[in-house]
Amino acid sequence: MRPPAPARVLMYHGVDHVSRERDPHGMFVTPANFRAQMEQLLEAGFVPVTEAAYLAALGGARLPRKAVLVTFDDGYQGVGEHAAPILESLGIPSVLYVLADLLGGRADWLGDRLGYPLLSAGEVQGLRTQGMAIGAHGLDHADLTAVDDAELRRQTRETRAALTELLGADVSTFAFPYGAHDRRAREAVAAAGYRAAFSVHRPAGRFGIQRVDVNATDTLRTLRVKLHGLYPAARRTSRHVPRARRLVHDLLGSAYDAPEPAPAGAGDPLEVNRS
Rank of each mutant, 00 (worst) to 15 (best):
G78F: 00
G122Q: 08
H141Y: 04
P117C: 06
A161W: 13
D74G: 05
A57I: 12
R62M: 01
L166D: 00
G131D: 09
A161N: 14
L166C: 03
V68I: 14
T129E: 14
R186M: 15
A84I: 03
V70F: 11
E151H: 03
T159M: 07
T173Q: 01
E88F: 09
H82F: 14
A61I: 10
L163W: 04
H141G: 04
G75N: 00
G126P: 06
G179P: 05
A53C: 02
A52K: 07
D108S: 13
E187W: 00
A52F: 04
S89M: 12
T164F: 10
G138M: 02
Y76P: 00
T173H: 02
R160L: 11
T71C: 09
A52S: 13
Q125A: 14
Y116W: 15
L58Y: 04
E88H: 05
E123F: 09
A84G: 04
Y54G: 05
I86K: 13
R184L: 12
L114A: 05
R183M: 06
Q130F: 12
D170I: 06
R154K: 15
F174M: 05
Q130A: 14
L90Q: 07
G135Q: 01
T173L: 07
S120L: 03
V68N: 04
G105S: 12
P177W: 02
A100Q: 05
V98D: 01
L166K: 10
H181G: 03
E81N: 08
S172L: 14
A84T: 00
A142M: 14
A61M: 12
G122C: 13
F72K: 02
G80W: 00
R62L: 07
E151P: 00
R184E: 14
I92V: 08
D149P: 15
L110E: 05
L63M: 08
P177G: 07
A52D: 13
L110I: 07
R62G: 04
A142G: 02
S120W: 14
L96I: 12
G168A: 15
S89P: 11
P85D: 11
T164L: 06
A121K: 03
V79H: 03
T71L: 10
A100N: 00
L69P: 04
R113Y: 09
R160F: 08
S89Y: 06
A185W: 02
A185P: 01
H82A: 07
G60L: 11
G59A: 13
Q155D: 10
M132I: 14
